[in-house]
Design a binder for these strands. Structure first.
Length: 482
RNA sequence: GGCGGUAUCGUCUAGGGGUCUAGGACACAGCCCUCUCAAGGCUGGAACACGGGUUCGAAUCCCGUUACCGCUACCA
């Protein structure tokens, strides 16, 4: 069993392509087959090496590793030509002397008459002697595939039986007059050469399929099994495009989405394991994936659900996997250096990530929330200060009492700390929130954070007391009181 | 225009003739938990496109209509 992902390098790897690649990869890995990568770079004017690079990077990030060497379609031009010539020799194709300009004009006229343009096969009716004469004269010609009568059908893995009347198919050009191949020929020629057994691609290729099946037959090769996955649309139901914001997988990487979450989410667009299963690790995904469950309906890409799913993955994945990812992001964001993290120790970093991961949906968000624990001086959020330190006099008193209580602790441990603080609140006749919220602002500058005793532990005795002292000296508390 | 495909809550979907007064998830609203924020739990509103068949019975099968999408190149 051999499958392939065959993108054309004309841009970044977008989510639709990624989903196609993922299904191919999953199918191959699940069935012990091979997953090949072919870059369809025959359109020289639109193909770029940067795009090729972006495709590799995207696949890499998603964890979709391919087998064997990458195939560049452009390197197979000779074979494509040979296949076209073979078709010409066996009578499956014929020379067409019509020029593009001429064809365009005829097409325009047909459209103007509100009719469907169909190539009238005039060159197929040319007298052999005349063809010979024009070839000898050096007149340029394209090679056209002669579509036979009848109907062409196949059993699609996602759509079931699909049939086309061959009469609907035009005699397609397979080799341009400059000797370069047309897409449909190149694809079939390459897929035969690569011994592809299952062609799994986007829905937009269904109308190419009958032409390709006919080409396989004409070339004497058995057609592969076909699977056509539905398109992925934007939130407005239209085909996904730049207008919809992030559409490249690279965008999601930078937004702090985890590869496994991305794969999980993408897999559920056009496929379902049945039942209520949604959040799945890569291993679970691989396990659940199979022949069944492909959906035929186009689906809408919902970034909000992707973020939720990412949050689920962050919360569930082993800390040993998440921490390195967050660590790298912390360094990349300039919030810490490798040395900083090393000096804090792995246990501390793990603890930080563990406390924050349930509160963040993306690693970017997590990194942002980690700020107060990594900097020397807290940055006070004005809104939090205004709300939690509203009564400056009381805040000062409570903060000072908290400081005293905390400083008097024999050991810096969460349990006794909480006990002491709660009894302080009782003595002061206030609810725990009245005592702890101002403290939270003093410690983190924010009104929201992990549990306050976890914060105290994370910061440690010295930093915690220092931050309370700094808060006590804050102008907001100093000037407003008296 | 022609051809092909698709049609269950706003979105992703379960369901494949009776168990469907249609289930789950995201989002939204409310409540609970609670030192805050999350997470979690509970509750709520929210869908079988329409019309004909077939059948004792249809979200499920068939036909048509409508809507949407794709293709209709000497692009890929």
């Amino acid at each position: 069993m051999r499958v392939r992902f065959a993108p054309s390098p004309t841009g970044y790897l977008h989510v639709g392509g990624a989903r196609t690649a993922l299904f191919n990869w999953l199918y191959a890995r699940k069935h012990g087959g091979s997953f090949l990568l072919r870059i369809e770079d025959t359109d020289r004017t639109r193909s770029t090496t940067e795009s090729t690079r972006a495709i590799f990077d995207g696949l890499d990030w998603l964890g979709l590793d391919w087998d064997e060497d990458v195939v560049y379609q452009g390197a197979n031009l000779e074979r494509h030509r040979r296949d076209a010539m073979a078709l010409l020799a066996t009578g499956g194709a014929y020379r067409c002397f019509c020029t593009s300009a001429d064809l365009d004009a005829r097409r325009a006229e047909a459209v103007a008459q509100k009719g469907a343009f169909r190539y009238d096969r005039r060159c197929d009716r040319l007298d052999p002697a005349e063809v010979e004469r024009r070839v000898q004269a050096g007149e340029p010609y394209a090679i056209r595939f002669r579509v036979p009568d009848g109907t062409t059908a196949w059993r699609d893995m996602v759509h079931g039986e699909i049939a086309f009347a061959n009469g609907e198919l035009d005699d397609l050009v397979i080799l341009r007059s400059d000797g370069t191949p047309i897409y449909n020929l190149a694809v079939v020629s390459d897929d035969i050469a690569m011994r592809i057994t299952h062609v799994m691609r986007g829905d937009d290729h269904v109308s190419n399929t009958p032409k390709q099946i006919l080409l396989y037959r004409a070339l004497g090769a058995p057609p592969p099994v076909f699977a056509h996955f539905p398109m992925i649309h934007g939130t407005d139901g239209k085909k996904l495009s730049k207008r919809h914001g992030a559409t490249a997988v690279g965008d999601y990487r930078h937004l702090g989405i985890l590869p496994d979450a991305m794969c999980n989410f993408l897999a559920l667009l056009g496929w379902s394991p049945g039942g209520d299963r949604e959040v799945m690790s890569r291993a679970e995904l691989l396990d659940a994936f199979g022949e069944a469950g492909f959906l035929a309906k186009a689906s809408v890409f919902d970034p909000a659900k992707l973020e939720w799913m990412n949050g689920q993955h962050m919360a569930r994945m082993p800390l040993a996997e998440l921490t390195p990812i967050v660590g790298a992001a912390l360094v990349a964001a300039g919030l810490a250096t490798e040395a900083d993290l090393a000096s804090r120790g792995p246990a501390w970093v793990n603890r930080l990530v563990d406390l924050l991961r349930v509160r963040a949906r993306t690693v970017v968000e997590l990194v942002h929330q980690a700020l107060p624990y990594l900097v020397d001086a807290v940055e006070y959020d004005p809104a939090s200060v205004a709300k939690q330190w509203k009564d400056a006099g009381a805040t000062r008193r409570l903060l000072a009492a908290s400081r005293e209580t905390l400083a008097g602790l024999a050991a810096w441990e969460a349990a006794p700390m909480e006990e002491a603080m709660r009894s302080l609140a009782a003595r002061e006749g206030v609810g725990a929130g009245k005592l702890l919220q101002p403290l939270r602002v003093a410690l983190t500058g924010l009104a929201a954070s992990p549990g306050i005793f976890d914060v105290l532990m994370l910061l440690g005795r010295d930093a915690s007391l220092r931050r309370i002292d700094t808060a006590l000296a804050h102008p907001y508390l100093a000037t407003t009181s008296a």
